Amino acid sequence: MIEPISTAPKVEKAVLVALITPRQTAEQAKEYLEELAFLAETSGVQTLETFTQRLDRPDTRTFVGKGKLEDIKAFVQEHEADVVIFDDELTPSQVRNLEQELQCKILDRSLLILNIFSVRAKTAQAKAQVELAQYQYLLPRLTRMWSHLSKQKGGIGMRGPGEKELETDRRIVRDKIAFLREKLDKIEKQSLTQRKGRKQLARVALVGYTNVGKSTLMRLLSKSDVFAENKLFATVDSTVRKVVINEIPFLLTDTVGFIRKLPHTLVECFKSTLDEIREADLLLHVVDISHPASHEQIEIVNSTLAEIGAGDKPMIMVYNKVDAMPEEERLNIQETGVPEESEQPVVDRVFISALKKQNIEVLREAVNEQVKERHYQIYPNYLQPQVYEGSWSFDGEEEE
């Protein structure tokens, strides 16, 4: 009997590698590898094994030492792994040397995140931003793509065919980068016009580490069908919805989640999207309080906010997923509070479960207290809305 040919895409098998250094403890390395495995899973890659090595600094040639590299090579060959993923950014020469040694695809954390963003991006702006970040990442790494031609030398005053090909590729990539920047400038001008029109309402932005429940909370507060999934970077495009709480309207924005070791090129390219955060009147910093590294995640988000120029925004700390904590621990945290160690002005703290819809009304009231102050600044002569049958109005304007 002839076996049917499977048309399902092949699931790639990966090996993950991290270092234990004076700046990164064994516990941190383990936690980072767990997050890297989650990133790999989000990309549709199955993790077979993880490797760690204690070094003062990464090996300049192969990132890990010779002995550890032999261990990784033996495992890759025995289990036919397709890719080895490193938790830190690799130099072009390290990638080239590792590919020669391991004879498989080599990725680092930055490229893995860029790949996820490229799949998740839906709008024209997000797609162009991710593509620009990918080309910026690729440009200094083009040399390794033509290493197989390195033995072909040209005569005096002539270049070898490999170098010609490389220069052609560099020119193509630089042209593509220039084109994407021009395209993003045009989109940014359109976005700026849209944001100017939104100044008539108070603006609130959801921020936080990736996969802490921002999109789920967005759905609850805005009562809209916003995409939410238990994967890293489920949301890449910013989403804006109009929300009304206690008859005070405002705009709520769900933004891309932050993560440790976020590629710098990605931060740069997404700065126009992050304008939604910079121009917000209030930030809702959503935290997965059940995560063992929640304190570190808070610090990463706060440092990223400072980097993009939003470090002085008033903030409500929204501690989510309290339902995933033991009751005694949850009660203790709610009584004693959580030290945030941030210069960000925290105006309130709320403990909720977006999944179980616990304390959502408390959060609504906390948001309303902050938003109505801004609303009255915009509309100092604002009157309480008059309620009619089937409609309500603000300042005499009826809204169906």
Rank of each mutant, 00 (worst) to 15 (best):
H148G: 05
R141V: 05
R120F: 06
K73I: 08
L111R: 13
N97Q: 11
S110M: 02
I113S: 09
N115T: 15
G67P: 02
V119M: 12
I72M: 04
A121C: 01
A126V: 03
L90K: 04
V119G: 02
Q125R: 01
Q134M: 15
T62A: 01
V64G: 05
E131N: 14
N97Y: 12
K66Q: 15
D82N: 12
F117S: 14
Y137K: 15
I72P: 03
P92N: 05
L90C: 02
F117Q: 12
V119R: 14
R120V: 09
Q100V: 11
L69C: 11
T123C: 07
K153S: 08
R109T: 04
Q129V: 04
E89M: 11
T123G: 12
K105C: 10
V84L: 05
P92C: 11
W146M: 10
K73W: 08
N97I: 09
Q103W: 09
S110I: 03
L138H: 15
L132Q: 05
L114M: 12
Q129P: 09
L132D: 03
K127E: 04
P140L: 12
S147E: 09
P92A: 10
G67V: 01
W146H: 07
V119K: 15
L107F: 15
R141C: 04
Q77K: 15
N97V: 13
R144K: 14
D88H: 00
G65Y: 02
A128C: 09
L138S: 01
D88M: 00
A133Q: 10
I72T: 03
T62M: 05
V76I: 13
F86V: 03
I113M: 00
I113R: 04
I72C: 07
T143A: 14
D88P: 07
E89V: 03
F63A: 04
S150F: 05
E99P: 06
R96W: 08
A81R: 07
L112H: 07
I116A: 07
A126E: 00
T60K: 03
W146F: 11
I85W: 10
E89S: 02
I116F: 08
R96Q: 15
S110Y: 02
D82H: 01
R141F: 00
V119H: 00
K151S: 13
R109F: 02
Q100G: 13
N115D: 09
F63N: 02
Q94C: 11
A128N: 12
Q152S: 00
S150M: 06
K105D: 02
G67R: 09
Y137P: 08
I116S: 05
I113N: 00
R61L: 04
S93C: 10
H79M: 14
H148F: 11
Q152L: 15
L139A: 06
V76Q: 06
G67M: 12
G67F: 08
R120T: 00
Y137L: 08
